[in-house]
Amino acid sequence: MTFKELKLSSALVSHLEKNQFPKPTPIQEQAIPSILAGKDVMGIAKTGSGKTLAYVLPLLDRLKNQPSENREIQALVMVPTRELAVQVSEAIILFSKALKNPLITMAVYGGVSINPQMMNMNSVDVLVATPGRLIELIEKNAVKIANTKILVLDEADKMLSMGFREEMNQVFTRLPSKIQTLLFSATLSPKVTEIIQHLTLDPVVINLPVPDEDLSLIKQIGYRVIDEKKGVLLRQLIEEHNMQQVLIFCSSTYQVEHVNDKLNTNGITSKAIHGKKAQGTRQDHLNQFKDPESDVRCLVTTDLLSRGIDIEFLPFVINYELPRSPKDYIHRIGRTGRAENPGTVISLVTPEESHHMRTIQKKTNMKVWMEDLEEWNS
């Protein structure tokens, strides 16, 4: 099936072809016709399956001739994180350019000053927002949603797990009773079902099976090392393997800053990302790390970057500290070995973490080759 067969406007179809989107993914193929028809939709599909364009394209098509007035936005997209807010708004802006009158789109989130966001709110058609900042803007009368036509909840499961239920309920009470609701999630959890019941929806349900992640291209190695020598071993591995692009995971903000500082002090250019850094700084550091022309070799982060962030052709991932759960381990190592390109994952395992490493291998049904070098264990 083609995008043209999905009955999208010719302008959007041409823009898709121009940006090398040859055909719809399964979630797009099933969701777009129902959304164009004005139906409520609940789409369940894994991260990376094309969920964003599954609602962005028909949303733009439906609103292309309905400009906003007096801070009354036409569509509200709620997301759990700043990074996702930026990504979604960029997708909307990109494809909105195809329209004769592009929709004005804005992303709002916490961690930055609210004043510029308030000042730029006039005539916004599509607002992409994290729940907390959205409530702040509503309470300051900076935005009105009483006449909003389309509500999108993107990664609804994550919003609920991150404790945004109260903020979401506050938003729901301010929305009109008649509104098209589009809910997209990676999992069909009981909490997601509760939202549907709370909003008294009878949506078209699209539930695509989630295939097991292909980790066959990933080489996994573990080094047994005492905690005091982790930093030295890390730097030696980076230099010995001539790593020019390596994503390093730590378990805490403090450890991220510590490892990042040590790398830079020892002549290995590195940047850090964690939840306490300003959004602009986080995005800038990520962009520098992705840029092949940049001299940034390492990006040190928490599990903030273990999901939903694609870094093309990333060759190395290092677990400076093991994640809390086997599931998080899968998400971390899945940052490499993509697009049929091989990748290497290295875990630095202290004696105290040995049992946890065995648990991870057992629960994930994966074998990690462990290196036991005497010089690093005494």
Rank of each mutant, 00 (worst) to 15 (best):
S49Y: 01
V56R: 01
L84F: 09
L76F: 10
V79Y: 06
V126P: 09
G50M: 06
K97Y: 05
R71C: 07
V112M: 13
Y109D: 05
R62A: 10
Q117Y: 09
L99C: 10
V128G: 10
V126W: 10
P116T: 05
L103T: 00
A45R: 03
L8W: 10
S68A: 15
T52E: 06
P131D: 12
A98M: 08
F95D: 06
E69A: 12
P131A: 13
S9H: 10
F21G: 02
L99G: 10
P116V: 09
M119D: 11
V79W: 03
G110Q: 08
A98R: 05
I27C: 04
M78L: 15
V126G: 11
K64F: 08
L53T: 00
I104E: 14
V41E: 02
R71A: 07
A129N: 06
A54Y: 06
I27P: 00
L36K: 04
G111Q: 11
V126N: 08
E90T: 12
V108T: 14
T105L: 11
I114G: 01
E90W: 11
T52A: 07
L76V: 08
L99T: 00
I93F: 03
V41A: 03
G132N: 13
A31D: 02
K97M: 09
L103F: 06
D61S: 10
I104L: 14
L76D: 04
E69M: 11
S49W: 05
A91Y: 10
Q28P: 02
P80S: 13
V41K: 03
V79G: 04
P131Q: 13
Y55W: 03
G48Q: 07
E72T: 03
A45L: 07
K97Q: 15
E83I: 12
A31E: 00
M78H: 00
P67Y: 12
I104G: 05
G132Q: 12
L94R: 12
V77S: 04
E29G: 02
R82Y: 08
Y109G: 04
R71Y: 14
K100E: 14
